[in-house]
Amino acid sequence: MWLINSSVGRKVVMSVSGLALILFLTFHACMNVVALFSRDGYNMICEFLGSNWYAVAGTVALAVLIAIHFVFAVILTLQNRKARGANRYAVSAKPDRVEWASQNMFVLGIIIVLGLVLHLYNFWFNMMFAEFANGGMAFATGLSATDGYGMMQYTFSCPVYTVLYLVWFAAIWFHLTHGFWSAMQTMGWSGKTWFNRWRCIGNIYVTLVMLCFVVVALYFAFCGSCCSATC
């Protein structure tokens, strides 16, 4: 199967799964922004994406996507280290036009996975999982498991979590600034002109998406509890 056996094929798998994950992040960002305007609106979305078959199927599909992206990243990294050989250069100068992110995609990926574990523990575990396993009650707060708004207030009331999430968002931003145009390049949808365009489009798009996450996190960190009914 050429998607596994050939270097270009493996990269295509990385690109397609990566682009799908960017699409997911876009939906997630849009959903979060609702919380800035309406508690009920946000919780309605949480309920809609709770314990029903389509939300669970979506979660499983997402998990598979992340697993594929991760496993292929590990395979590619190991193969590339082998291709590089055992001998390292004694002196190496990094050319200016090489982006830092492009050389550190795997490290950034590891940070993102660690952040994801924290995120699943903070939210998924207290929400979708709690709906099935804890009779619809969040483990951490004792609130309703569909009260996503309450979970955000609870999580971001802790400054350590807020900082950890901001670091996580920064890692995702770096990862995607390279990932976006790199995916287009791998799919062959690039060239001398489109390389610059994709890079520009990618940087703007990714910055907008990540800003949504940052704004929501900061909102809940600084004024989430003052207007809350639960605290």
Partner: peptide, 11 residues
């Protein structure tokens, strides 16, 4: 190895 588009080559 597998190309990861770092652009070190063209530099």
């Amino acid at each position: 190895g597998n190309c990861t588009n770092t652009r070190a080559c063209e530099a």
